[in-house]
Design a protein around this nucleic acid. Structure first.
Lengths: 132, 132
DNA sequence: AGTCACATTGACGTTCACGTAAGGCAAACG
DNA sequence: CGTTTGCCTTACGTGAACGTCAATGTGACT
């Protein structure tokens, strides 16, 4: 454990396909908190885990602010009962949100598959009767 | 069928919880194409179907431009073989995208449930041993 | 005819999530 | 030792998706 699970900004960019600007921007919004060696940023394993969650959140259309709050849920660790209870409430809201999205997503998939099937069928008919 | 499945902008706003500005904006981007009675917009059943898809697309983080292209998939109807074939390609890409999202979403849900379970457990321990 | 409630068209403003120079520091290479 | 390379900060710019305000129009009461 030489503590060298640290990555430069460029390594991060290559790994996650983001720009340096993006990582600095996320830091400015307190989504990431890389260490420093002099001026230079060094991203930890924790930063990478968070970035993964950030990008996932973005794919689901969450704003960075929403993501920031979500991230905090994964980051309690040493805490009081009240905070845990609050966290549970927030987490359960998120969970319901996600489950609703799942339903929505299933519907979208079904719709599209139906649409594709209809297209296939129409193509078949066209080929049997090439009269436009 | 008095052709009165037409809605004013206000009815649309109330039904879908959007602002007039939003509907006009979508029209300017050619996502909607309400009829006119004089100056006033009248939204058809088709507009409502499209708006529903638009809002769903937004929930999944698609841009309006992406949504516009997606909408076209549902709007072929009278067409040539080539266009149908192209549409199928696009639709299948979308479908794979959606299915990937589904996997992603399942993971997110699993993560959160795990996190909540951990929180519950920690709460139990705290209650058995109220020594902070 | 008056006025009240809404709708419409510009046009400018705003927030979010970065992009894009401009200028400086510092290690590394020829 | 100069310069190229890579990262840093500061700061202004940008596109998307609307918000907001002003001026105008128009149908529906009273």
């Amino acid at each position: 454990m030489t503590d060298d699970d640290l990555m430069t900004i460029r390594q991060m960019c290559d790994t996650f396909e983001v720009t340096p600007r993006t990582l600095r921007f996320y830091e400015s919004k307190e989504l990431l908190a890389p260490k420093r060696e002099g001026q230079k940023r060094l991203f930890t394993r924790r930063d990478r885990a968070r970035l993964k969650l950030i990008l996932r959140g973005k794919r689901f259309g969450f704003s960075l602010e929403e993501i920031r709050q979500l991230l905090d849920l994964y980051e309690i660790g040493d805490d009081q009962e009240t905070q845990l209870t609050q966290a549970r409430a927030i987490a359960q809201n998120r969970l319901e949100d996600l489950k609703a999205r799942r339903v929505d997503l299933e519907e979208a998939i079904a719709d599209l598959e139906e649409q594709i099937a209809w297209g296939e069928e129409t193509l078949q008919k066209l080929r049997r009767n090439p009269a436009a």
